[in-house]
Simulated assay, not measured.
Amino acid sequence: MSKFHNVSVIKKANVYHNGNVTSRTVKFVDGSIKTLGFMLPGEYTFTTTDKELMEIIDGELEVLLPDSEQWQKVKGGESFDVPANAQFQINIKSPTDYCCSYFK
Protein backbone atom coordinates (compact mmCIF):
# COMPACT_ATOMS: atom_id res chain seq x y z
CA MET A 1 0.00 0.00 0.00
CA SER A 2 1.65 3.23 -1.13
CA LYS A 3 -1.08 5.56 0.18
CA PHE A 4 -3.16 5.72 3.37
CA HIS A 5 -6.73 7.06 3.42
CA ASN A 6 -8.86 8.40 6.31
CA VAL A 7 -6.06 8.70 8.86
CA SER A 8 -4.90 11.13 11.52
CA VAL A 9 -1.25 12.16 11.67
CA ILE A 10 0.43 13.36 14.84
CA LYS A 11 2.35 16.51 13.89
CA LYS A 12 5.09 16.18 16.51
CA ALA A 13 7.95 13.98 15.31
CA ASN A 14 9.31 11.00 17.21
CA VAL A 15 13.06 11.70 17.35
CA TYR A 16 15.65 9.08 18.35
CA HIS A 17 19.43 8.74 18.39
CA ASN A 18 20.30 12.45 18.28
CA GLY A 19 17.96 13.07 15.35
CA ASN A 20 19.38 10.33 13.14
CA VAL A 21 16.09 8.43 13.30
CA THR A 22 12.74 10.23 13.02
CA SER A 23 9.16 9.19 12.43
CA ARG A 24 5.57 10.43 12.45
CA THR A 25 2.68 8.50 13.98
CA VAL A 26 -0.29 7.64 11.74
CA LYS A 27 -3.57 6.59 13.41
CA PHE A 28 -6.22 4.66 11.49
CA VAL A 29 -10.01 4.65 11.98
CA ASP A 30 -9.87 1.04 13.25
CA GLY A 31 -7.46 2.09 16.04
CA SER A 32 -4.32 0.64 14.45
CA ILE A 33 -1.11 2.65 14.44
CA LYS A 34 1.83 2.90 12.07
CA THR A 35 4.86 5.13 11.98
CA LEU A 36 6.46 6.51 8.85
CA GLY A 37 10.11 7.29 9.35
CA PHE A 38 13.60 7.90 8.08
CA MET A 39 16.95 6.61 9.38
CA LEU A 40 20.40 7.98 8.59
CA PRO A 41 23.43 5.65 8.37
CA GLY A 42 24.62 4.39 11.75
CA GLU A 43 24.13 1.65 14.33
CA TYR A 44 21.08 1.82 16.60
CA THR A 45 19.42 -0.26 19.30
CA PHE A 46 15.64 -0.24 19.75
CA THR A 47 13.29 -1.78 22.31
CA THR A 48 9.75 -2.88 21.45
CA THR A 49 6.58 -3.01 23.50
CA ASP A 50 4.25 -4.39 20.82
CA LYS A 51 5.01 -6.79 17.99
CA GLU A 52 6.24 -4.81 14.96
CA LEU A 53 6.41 -5.24 11.22
CA MET A 54 9.17 -3.09 9.71
CA GLU A 55 8.65 -2.48 5.99
CA ILE A 56 11.66 -0.94 4.27
CA ILE A 57 10.44 1.38 1.54
CA ASP A 58 13.89 2.45 0.32
CA GLY A 59 17.42 2.00 1.61
CA GLU A 60 19.60 -0.79 2.91
CA LEU A 61 20.28 -2.09 6.40
CA GLU A 62 21.29 -5.07 8.48
CA VAL A 63 19.23 -6.15 11.49
CA LEU A 64 20.17 -8.36 14.43
CA LEU A 65 16.91 -9.75 15.78
CA PRO A 66 16.38 -11.17 19.28
CA ASP A 67 17.50 -14.79 19.69
CA SER A 68 19.62 -14.54 16.54
CA GLU A 69 23.39 -14.45 16.23
CA GLN A 70 23.41 -13.59 12.53
CA TRP A 71 22.79 -10.18 10.97
CA GLN A 72 20.09 -10.20 8.26
CA LYS A 73 20.40 -7.93 5.21
CA VAL A 74 17.22 -6.02 4.32
CA LYS A 75 16.68 -3.59 1.45
CA GLY A 76 13.89 -1.52 -0.07
CA GLY A 77 10.82 -3.65 -0.81
CA GLU A 78 11.58 -6.12 1.99
CA SER A 79 10.38 -6.37 5.60
CA PHE A 80 11.04 -8.09 8.91
CA ASP A 81 9.11 -8.86 12.11
CA VAL A 82 10.20 -7.97 15.63
CA PRO A 83 8.56 -9.69 18.61
CA ALA A 84 6.92 -7.76 21.46
CA ASN A 85 8.98 -6.82 24.52
CA ALA A 86 12.27 -7.30 22.70
CA GLN A 87 15.45 -5.44 21.86
CA PHE A 88 17.03 -5.44 18.41
CA GLN A 89 19.92 -3.76 16.63
CA ILE A 90 19.95 -2.07 13.24
CA ASN A 91 22.97 -1.06 11.17
CA ILE A 92 21.78 1.42 8.54
CA LYS A 93 23.97 1.23 5.43
CA SER A 94 22.26 3.95 3.37
CA PRO A 95 19.53 6.50 4.19
CA THR A 96 16.43 4.39 4.82
CA ASP A 97 12.73 5.19 4.49
CA TYR A 98 10.46 2.85 6.47
CA CYS A 99 6.93 2.09 7.67
CA CYS A 100 6.45 0.34 11.00
CA SER A 101 3.16 -1.39 11.91
CA TYR A 102 2.33 -2.21 15.54
CA PHE A 103 0.30 -5.21 16.72
CA LYS A 104 -1.07 -5.63 20.25
Rank of each mutant, 00 (worst) to 15 (best):
H5F: 13
S8T: 13
V9T: 12
I10Y: 08
I10Q: 15
A13E: 15
V15W: 01
V15A: 02
H17V: 01
G19H: 08
N20E: 13
V21W: 02
T22R: 11
T22Y: 00
T22N: 06
F28L: 11
V29C: 08
D30H: 05
S32F: 08
I33D: 03
L36R: 10
F38K: 04
F38Y: 15
M39R: 04
P41R: 01
P41A: 01
G42L: 02
E43V: 10
E43R: 11
T45F: 04
T48H: 06
T48I: 05
K51A: 12
E52I: 01
L53A: 06
M54W: 07
E60K: 12
V63W: 07
L65D: 10
D67R: 12
W71I: 02
Q72I: 14
K73L: 12
V74H: 07
K75P: 00
G76W: 02
G77H: 08
S79D: 11
V82D: 08
P83D: 12
A84P: 13
F88G: 06
F88K: 07
I92R: 00
P95T: 03
P95W: 00
P95A: 05
T96D: 02
T96V: 03
Y98C: 00
C99N: 10
C99L: 13
C100L: 10
S101A: 13
K104F: 07
